[in-house]
C-alpha cells in the first residue's frame, strides 16, 4: 500500500466531508466532487501498485497495473459525473425558486419542533 496515495485519499475524504456538510449547495457540489476523487483513487489503490498500462502484449502481466479496478473506477467516474450534473441541475432549480443556493430545512419537522418547545435555538440553526 502506498502511503502517499493513502494520504491523498484521506485528505480528499476529510475535506470532501467538511464541504458536503455545509449549507451552501455549491460547497456541497464541490464536496461531492472531492469525495468522488477520493473513491476513485481508493479503488485504483485497492488494485495494487502502479504498473504498466494493462495492454495485452505491451508488458508482462505481472508488470501491469491491475485492470479490473480501472474498469470499476471508470464506471464509478461516469456515474458520479452523472450525479454531479443532476445535483447541479437541482441546485439551479433551487436558485430559481428561492433566490439563493442554501439548503432549506424541512418545514414540517420545523413545525413539529416549534409545537414541542417553541422556537428554540438548535444546533443546526447555528449552522445557517
Amino acid at each position: 500500500m502506498n502511503a502517499a496515495l493513502l494520504l491523498a485519499i484521506g485528505g480528499l475524504t476529510a475535506v470532501g466531508l467538511y464541504l458536503l456538510t455545509s449549507r451552501s449547495l455549491s460547497r456541497i457540489v464541490i464536496g461531492y466532487s472531492l469525495l468522488g476523487h477520493a473513491t476513485v483513487v481508493a479503488l485504483i489503490t485497492a488494485g495494487g501498485p502502479a504498473g504498466w498500462p494493462p495492454i495485452a502484449g505491451g508488458a508482462a502481466p505481472e508488470d501491469m497495473s491491475n485492470p479490473l479496478p480501472q474498469a470499476l473506477t471508470l464506471t464509478a467516474i461516469v456515474i458520479s459525473f452523472g450525479l454531479t450534473l443532476f445535483l447541479l441541475a437541482l441546485a439551479r432549480r433551487q436558485r430559481t425558486l428561492s433566490g439563493d443556493d442554501l439548503v432549506e430545512d424541512d418545514l414540517e419537522d420545523r413545525r413539529i419542533a416549534a409545537v414541542e418547545s417553541g422556537p428554540t435555538e438548535t444546533e443546526d440553526s447555528v449552522a445557517t
Binding site: T13, G16, Y32, L35, G36, A38, T39, V40, A42, L43, T45, A46, L72, A76
Partner: peptide, 8 residues
Amino acid sequence: TLFLFGVA
C-alpha cells in the same frame, strides 16, 4: 461514496 470505499 461510502459504498465505493467499502468496495475498495
